[in-house]
Structures are given as structure tokens and as C-alpha cells.
């Protein structure tokens, strides 16, 4: 038996080397696995929070109505009731947070209306559409229509 051990000594050394390597791997691994990994599944639980961090750019309709009660009411009563303020006025969370410093945005451009109301066959048939070039050529849409309560 002792002879066998002596003749396999190099293999034992190799085995020990591998065992040492494996041990180092396991120790290092235990140190490096990020905190919270595996708590909720195979991922860093903290990654959920990281995905929540960004600040919203669109404030949402409720935030607009807090200051702009009158236009919000007229919008709610008209044909555009389902549309959010920021659909036309753009992302205004920054304005909602600091109304005095950051100005809002008046939406009057013809291009804006045309984006939804230009004639396009792929649009649902019941959706109000106009020929964007010939319809009231040259005039601003808001000359005839109230964007908050469209119709003539």
C-alpha cells in the first residue's frame, strides 16, 4: 500500500493541486456573488429597484389638471376627452415639477393635428380624416376647431 502511494505520488500532488484550485474557486465565488442574487429568482433582487429609479418625463393627466383646471375640464367634456394632455403638449413632467422655471408648450401646429387626422387608408374607417393639403389650405386648424373640444 505504501509503495502504491509512493508510485502514485505525482498523481496525488496533481489531485491536491486541483482540489486547491477548486477550493479557491469556491471561496472567491462565495465572495463575489452579488448581494440579493437569488432572493426572488435567478437575478439580483436589487435590479428591480434599479429599473424603478428613472424619473418620469410624462407627468400624466392628473398632474396637469392640478393647475390647469379649466382646459382640463373643457377637454374632458369634448370629443378629445380620451386624449391625454401630453399627447399634444409633449412630455411635461419637468414643467409640472417646476412650473415657474420650465415653460409648458402650446400645441397649435397644423402638423400635430395632421399626424392623427391626415387621410390614410390604414386608419379605421370611422376615424375623422381630412385631405391634409387641400383641407382649409393655409389656415391654422385652430382657426376653426377648438383642439380641446373639436367640431366646428
Amino acid at each position: 500500500m505504501r509503495e502504491l502511494l509512493r508510485d502514485a505520488e505525482h498523481l496525488i500532488r496533481l489531485g491536491l493541486l486541483f482540489a486547491a484550485g477548486l477550493l479557491v474557486f469556491l471561496v472567491v465565488r462565495a465572495q463575489l456573488v452579488p448581494a440579493g442574487f437569488g432572493e426572488l429568482g435567478h437575478f439580483r433582487a436589487g435590479a428591480i429597484g434599479a429599473n424603478q429609479e428613472r424619473e418620469p418625463r410624462f407627468a400624466g393627466r392628473a398632474a396637469c389638471a392640478e393647475c390647469h383646471g379649466e382646459p382640463a375640464e373643457s377637454l374632458a367634456a369634448g370629443g378629445h376627452a380620451a386624449i391625454s394632455c401630453e399627447s399634444c403638449h409633449g412630455a411635461l413632467a419637468a414643467h409640472a415639477a417646476e412650473p415657474a422655471e420650465i415653460p409648458g408648450f402650446a400645441a397649435t401646429a397644423r402638423a400635430l393635428c395632421v399626424q392623427c387626422h391626415a387621410m390614410n387608408r390604414a386608419r379605421p374607417a370611422g376615424h375623422p380624416q381630412v385631405e391634409p393639403v387641400s383641407h382649409a389650405e393655409g389656415a391654422a386648424c385652430t382657426d376653426c376647431h377648438d383642439a380641446h373640444a373639436p367640431g366646428l
Binding site: 509503495e3 502504491l4 509512493r6 508510485d7 502514485a8 505520488e9 505525482h10 500532488r13 496533481l14 493541486l17
Partner: peptide
């Protein structure tokens, strides 16, 4: 060689 120079027929 990992410090082992054993080349006996058995090894």
C-alpha cells in the same frame, strides 16, 4: 513535474 520525478515501471 509537480516536484515528483518518480519514473518507476509501476508509476
Amino acid at each position: 513535474t509537480l516536484g515528483s520525478e518518480n519514473l518507476s515501471p509501476r508509476s
